[in-house]
Nucleic acid binder design. Sequence first.
DNA 1: CGCACTAGACTTTTT
DNA 2: GTCTAGTGCG
Length: 707
Amino acid sequence: MDLSGLNEPQKAAVTQTSGAVMVMAGAGSGKTKVLTTRIAYIIDELGVSKDSILALTFTNKAANEMKVRISNILGGIDTKNMWVSTFHSFCVRILRKEIGHLENYTNSFNIIDEEDAQKIVKDICKNECIDSKPKELRHLISKSKNFEAFSIDDPFLNQDYDTVSRLYEEYKIKNNLLDFDDLIIKTIELFKEAPEVLYRYQYKFEYILVDEFQDTNALQYVLIRMLAALHNNIFVVGDDFQSIYSFRGAKIENIHKFRRDYKDHKMILLEENYRSTNEILNLANCIIDKNPNQIKKVMYSHGKTGDKPILYDADTAFGEASFVVEQIKKLHDKGDSYSDFAIMYRANYISRGFEDVLLREHIPYRIFGGLSFFARKEIKDMTAYLRVLVHPDDNFSFLRIVNEPKRKIGDKVIESLTSVSNEYNKSLFDSIDLYSGSGSIELKKFKIMMTSIKESLANCKLPDIIDILLKETSYEDMLKKGDSDEYQDRISNIKEFKSVLKETELDHEDEGLTNEEILDILLSDLALRSENDDAKESDSVILTTYHQAKGLEFKNVFMVAMEDGIFPSQNSVTKEDVEEERRICYVGITRAKDRLFISHVGRRFLFGFTQQMMPSCFLGEMKREFYNLYGEYKTPKKDIESKAIPNVLSAKDAVTSDLKVGDKVNHKTFGDGKVISINGKIAEIAFALPTGIKKMLSTHPSLTKIN
DNA sequence: CGCACTAGACTTTTT
DNA sequence: GTCTAGTGCG
């Protein structure tokens, strides 16, 4: 196999196939290239079957991209069914086959998303008259399931947590439901309780590869270790600089753990950056240098040079958006495509102002994120209908749609039906025949309707089942009655969903499956999918959060809304939080290949108020020599220096200031406040309304003591 | 049971 | 400011 396109460390990472290998791959160092070439190498040079390789990623997009690239390297081989997938999809694939080895679940289990999980917790709280906030409880449940340490001081909350988490588990078992956390947990449980099953998979997967290793959590690490225990051919790629998912339980410590657990591992550093210009890397290095606890690693540029990053200081969000659009137009006129641009921000709500201006200027754009396609109400409703068609015993889906559109089947009727179903130990759908109380006519009509739709399913083209559903269930009529813009929106989403069915049908066209079987395959992991999975090529400007931009690269990047309170987010309280924000900033900078623009505004309309904004403390961490102010070359130097740009960072002052109760302080975003308590490093500070009382690190860079 | 109005939350990141 | 869930009335 031709490896001449690789540098030495990359080559080593590809050819060192046996044993444990850890690759520390800096941003833009050819990580995906190494992963895919290595898999191709194992197949092509070692003659290993492609079914004996397991590659785990964090996003479907990364998994799909890897499959395509492996196929390309190996002359177009079929990689569709390779075990290259996200952790979660991998677990679903195992559990669909094997979950019968565990008690309580059958392999037609349904996967619930975060919205469903929250609704279940909320309903439990309501039924049990529990006062604690459902959202907080749900959060704690997820935390505990990922074996994260936490303690609850409040005895009431503690008691509520015990009750609700128990009932939540019971509810899921009763309804054959698994949440995202369960997918990993149940797989581990399965492997523990059925060692022969574990052995089968250990034996099968001779080579295991893990992408974005720095983002694995404690459970995912356990899973990897279990699977690799027989052949011990385990290859992990990560970059501790890009660890930005600790809020989801990701553990950088897994990197150290790996090094301890696999004593003989080989460590390979990929330090040569092929993506960005020198100028961009300089700025990235400035930022990451400020984080004390990173594994030291130098990023060498590949020698590409370009313009210094540009900093723009706008008055308002509108001014900022106009600036960005102006730059895009200018560069587009010079020949860049719209898809060469990305506008990046810390939180989704920032996108609005940019959308407005892009729309008005007729510049095509695409937004990553926000509400996932498959999480939209109409799509979840359609999915629930389809699930009831294929699995009539799916009570959870049944309850979602039995009265949607309204069919006069209310809570009271469902309550009585449920007691019948408990009595005869049958599903709600099957209990309809046995039920004779009030509402029985409506229920029977519903059942007849669903049965007739199911008959149509056997004889129609698969996507047409959506039209049949829309018509027969009167779902479309219901939408038509509502707002017409909303109707357009929802119908076009449903059309899009129809094309997902079409794709699935095509994927399986020669396999002699019935429509019902194809639907079952489609439904099996729908909850894990998101619309950005397929890198749809379209000539559009991309609007995205830093998190969703991870792994991507763009010729021109705009980092916008670089203001304290937005980035770093005002929710980052501890030193660790701010360090993670800093890594997010690093991820943002290193997405850019040629040009980087950084902007911030003086005032911004937020939560119904116009607020004074201060530049992000990260701007102060960027050495002045490494960027230009926009228009610097035309503006007299004196003016620039009088501008309130950077050394905003009062970090030095702040770190040395130790606060006491009663001290008056100033926060760059919240204004003046008074310290009301100190607990270790955490200070509780009362600010003027609307901010009110905030807990924050007393050494937070945005805080200064005033006398 | 369904509609209309109101109060409250929301704005961190996601498989 | 905008969206949503919850309440109360017809």
